[in-house]
């Protein structure tokens, strides 16, 4: 049976979403995306450099007709900044699927959940399909669901920290309480972290720094691709029960 990541009635074969920031150049970025197998990439909205027209453009390297662009509000600290950014993003190319991120603290980059929920409500009313970066708090996740979010995206650890999943229990609780796509958004550092996220029952992971800042980003992108597939298959297969005693794998019958 085919196993797709379904977001807002659209199926994606890959459960790995990758960011397009922090790469050496667009060439490396596009090669990493290819190696990752990702079908969705996050992008930022920024001013055009009208004084240096020779600067290469993201769209010249990553074709939005082939890869789904997920405009993100990274860097926004208020609801009004985030709304302005996503309304502009929609105007660029008619995108409705967006990623909302309203930060509350410059040091930790933790989300401001009050502003995030408020923004989710407004954007949903305006017809956006909002995937939402949030804290790993099951109650906040529920509130976002009620506000109209199409995907819940809790952090595993602070953005760019590479610490891996700090609170597996919370992620499990969120999983058990929402039918929405649950995608780990931030804080993963290596391939095994991605597998763990998938084994906890998450529907996908979003990775930027762990790939872009690895010594070999292309190889890490590939590692993440396989880790997500491995973790998902492991989750679907149903793991064995844990026991503190040994259980022999070979039959006793026929022992010499």
């Amino acid at each position: 049976m085919d196993d797709y990541l379904n977001i807002s009635n659209k199926n994606f074969k890959s459960r790995l979403i990758v960011g397009t920031g922090k790469y050496k150049n667009f060439k490396e970025c596009s090669e990493a995306i290819k190696a990752s197998g990702a079908q969705i990439v996050t992008v930022a909205v920024r001013r055009v450099n009208i004084f240096d027209k020779k600067k290469p453009l993201l769209m010249d390297y990553i074709d939005p007709k082939k890869i789904t662009y997920l405009p993100n509000t990274a860097g926004c600290f208020t609801s009004s900044e985030a709304l302005r950014t996503l309304r502009l993003a929609r105007e660029i190319g008619g995108w409705k699927l967006v990623k909302l991120e309203v930060l509350g603290d410059k040091k930790t980059l933790f989300p401001d959940m009050i502003e995030t929920i408020k923004s989710t409500e407004v954007l949903t009313k305006e017809g956006f399909k909002v995937m939402v970066y949030c804290s790993d708090d099951p109650l906040m996740a529920k509130r976002l669901e009620n506000a109209g979010a199409v995907a819940i995206m809790p952090l595993a650890a602070p953005i760019g920290s590479g610490l891996g999943i700090l609170n597996k229990v919370n992620i499990k609780i969120i999983r058990s309480r929402t039918k929405l796509p649950l995608i780990i958004d931030a804080g993963l550092g290596q391939a095994s972290d991605a597998s763990i996220a998938m084994e906890l029952g998450c529907d996908g992971v979003l990775i930027n720094t762990a790939i872009a800042m690895a010594k070999n980003p292309i190889q890490m992108a590939q590692a993440m691709r396989f880790a997500v597939i491995a973790g998902r298959k492991s989750f679907l297969s149903g793991r064995i029960k844990k026991t503190i005693y040994g259980k022999a794998s070979s039959p006793k019958k026929g022992l010499i």
Partner: peptide, 29 residues
């Protein structure tokens, strides 16, 4: 701070003091 419908841009005249923002997609997480 008002988004312009791109189909209408030939009808919009620039006035003194206008603040124009032109944005696009760049790499981001």
């Amino acid at each position: 701070e008002k988004i312009i419908n791109k189909k209408m841009i030939n009808k919009i005249k620039i006035k003194n003091g206008d603040k124009i923002e032109i944005v696009h997609f760049i790499g981001g997480g």
